Simulated scan of single mutants.
Amino acid sequence: MPQLDTSTWFIMITSMFLTLFILLQLKISKYNYPHNAEIATKLDYKISTPWMKKWTKIYLPLSLPQ
């Protein structure tokens, strides 16, 4: 049986890790992170929709008096 040549494995594995590290760094560098990490409260977050201006009530058939 022929002998398996493993002389290039170290170069291939090292170059693979280097390439993956560079690609990961390039992907991470595209994100914009805030300078001060403050927790946003839900009270400041208010959506105004047209149906919130009207008073509506839905009557279900099972909730009517019998």
Score class of each variant (00 low, 15 high):
Thr19Ile: 10
Glu38Gln: 14
Thr14Glu: 12
Leu62Ala: 06
Leu43Val: 08
Ser48Gln: 15
Gln66Thr: 04
Ile39Asp: 03
Thr49Lys: 08
Lys30Leu: 03
Ser7Asn: 04
Pro65Phe: 00
Thr19Asn: 04
Lys53Arg: 14
Phe10Ala: 15
Gln3His: 08
Tyr33Met: 09
Thr49Met: 01
Leu23Tyr: 01
Leu64Gly: 00
Gln3Met: 13
His35Thr: 13
Thr19His: 06
Pro2Phe: 05
Thr49Trp: 02
Ile13Ser: 04
Glu38Leu: 09
Gln25Lys: 14
His35Cys: 11
Phe21Lys: 02
Thr8His: 08
Ala40Phe: 07
Gln25Val: 14
Thr41Leu: 07
Tyr59Asn: 07
Leu26Asn: 05
Leu26Gly: 05
Leu60Met: 05
Ala40Ile: 14
Lys54His: 13
Tyr45Thr: 10
Pro50Met: 02
Lys54Trp: 07
Ser63Ile: 02
Ile28Cys: 05
Lys53Leu: 10
Ile28Tyr: 08
Leu60Gly: 01
Lys42Gly: 14
Leu43Glu: 15
Tyr31His: 12
Ser15Lys: 07
Lys30Ser: 11
Leu24Tyr: 10
Asn32Pro: 10
Tyr45Pro: 02
Tyr59Lys: 06
Pro50Ala: 00
Phe17Glu: 12
Leu18Phe: 09
Lys42Gln: 11
Leu24Glu: 11
Pro50His: 06
Pro2Ser: 06
Thr49His: 02
Met1Pro: 12
Ile13Pro: 01
Pro2Met: 04
Tyr31Arg: 11
Ala40Gln: 08
Pro65Leu: 00
Pro34Met: 00
Asn36Tyr: 09
Phe21Tyr: 06
Thr56Gly: 10
Leu62Phe: 10
Pro34His: 00
Leu60Ala: 01
Thr49Tyr: 00
Pro2His: 01
Lys57Ala: 08
Ile58Tyr: 08
Ser7Asp: 02
Thr19Val: 12
Ile22Ser: 07
Thr49Ile: 01
Leu60Glu: 08
Ser15Pro: 01
Thr19Pro: 00
Ser7Lys: 02
Pro34Arg: 02
Ile13Arg: 07
Thr19Trp: 08
Asn32Lys: 13
Asn32Ile: 10
Thr41Arg: 12
Leu18His: 02
His35Tyr: 07
Lys42Leu: 13
Thr56Arg: 05
Asp44Arg: 11
Pro34Asn: 01
Pro65Cys: 00
Pro61Gln: 01
Thr14Asp: 11
Leu23Lys: 03
Met52Ile: 09
Thr56Tyr: 05
Pro50Phe: 01
Thr14Asn: 14
Thr14Ala: 10
Met12Leu: 15
Ile28Trp: 12
Leu24Ile: 07
Tyr31Trp: 06
